[in-house]
Amino acid sequence: MVPLQLVVILFAAAAGLAVVLARDIVRQAILFSLYGFALVVLFVVLQAPDVALSALAVSGIAYPLVLVSAIARVRARDKRGRE
């Protein structure tokens, strides 16, 4: 295992831990896309550019989009519930 791979694996592990430890759900969604980015870098470092592109598109764009809009939806409902 070359040092670069080790660094990226540790980065992915730290980002994954951050997702689990975050309490605020929006912060968690943003940290998740950071974790996804760590995985993308890991795939590039391990010479799997096709997988990296898929991961970039799904965990960097598609998943956070759906997640954030779902959170906004639930918050709007909560707000109305309180009113």
């Binding site: 550019p49 096709d50 990296a52 592109l53 898929s54 970039l56 598109a57 799904v58 764009i61 598609a62 989009l65």
Partner: peptide, 14 residues
């Protein structure tokens, strides 16, 4: 080059 219909499709949607 790396990529294809699936990846490109998600990027186009983005």
């Amino acid at each position: 080059t790396p990529g294809g219909g699936f990846q490109g499709g998600v990027v186009l949607a983005a």
